[in-house]
Design a protein around this nucleic acid. Structure first.
Lengths: 144, 144
DNA sequence: CAATAGTTTAGAACTACTCTAAATAGGAAC
DNA sequence: GTTCCTATTTAGAGTAGTTCTAAACTATTG
């Protein structure tokens, strides 16, 4: 009874994405994508997720954390965000959005793209298409 | 005579910025910022600059390349751009501008900000100010 | 030109990942 | 269930990009 409690939403999502629902993947999917897991949207680093998983009693190596984060990104469950050197963030917010980046703390906050309009950008050059337009508002502690 | 040829513009810029005009810094300033050095704007990585300097007969260690790039950035001679994991780019374009990023090749191209308008962004939260708004258009090879 | 403080350097160290090859574990077939 | 096969996981080595350290060097001041 204990093993199969809870919805198997995550299990189904994994299977649909062609990912075998292993213990590690299911557990990480619950942590990141499960209902009421953490307040979302979240911006998690591999290192942070590794620690969080360990605290939750999930035994998973760092290599698997990286593999899984990339597989989830490929499957469209997450979005990778790089704003500066240092670790990548994986964002659970899949909607169109941009970011507020606090340079002093490294904190990343979402900005719904619904209200934001970017005009005057050039057309995509021949042979290319726009994958995404990222807007990052870099904030620093007000001086003075 | 040979040692002091050329304008000493770079030398003065360094001094004004409080940077002692050492052989290495002057040589790198000429490569990056000097008139007619390379077509500009440029997006150079530390590694690429190290190789370029070596080819130009400038003996400079990689550590100094990194130090100098950061000092130049601090002095406002360069701007650091991070678009994905991998090396940082240092941009000689100091005007307001955004970037086209070719995901397949890693190429970075400037977009003059004069024509671009970004509206609907939230105000900077209390105690912070906007350091910069970066727009990155991510391009990929058109599929299909 | 000597003193001194800022610079440079080689090489070690470090961070954030990725790879490798062996062990493990889903899941289909019986 | 048991067997088999392949996907997955893992520890640990390896790598890229960058920073640190402590000693050697050099631009400037007196």
């Amino acid at each position: 009874m204990a093993l199969l409690t809870g919805t198997s939403t995550e299990l189904d999502r994994l299977r649909t994405a062609g990912l075998r629902p292993t213990r590690q993947r299911v557990a990480l999917a619950r942590l990141l994508l499960g209902p009421g897991a953490h307040p979302r949207p979240r911006h998690v680093t591999a290192e942070a997720l590794h620690i969080e998983a360990a605290r939750a009693g999930i035994k998973v190596s760092l290599a698997t954390i990286y593999n899984t984060l990339h597989q989830f990104t490929g499957a469209g469950f997450l979005r990778e965000v790089v704003v500066d050197s240092g670790p990548s963030y994986f964002d659970t917010n899949l909607g169109e959005h941009h970011h507020l980046y606090f340079e002093d703390t490294g904190e990343l906050r979402d900005v719904d793209a619904a209200n934001v309009r970017v005009t005057g950008l050039p057309a995509a050059p021949r042979g290319t298409e726009v994958a995404r337009v990222d807007v990052v508002v870099r904030l620093r502690h007000r001086k003075g």
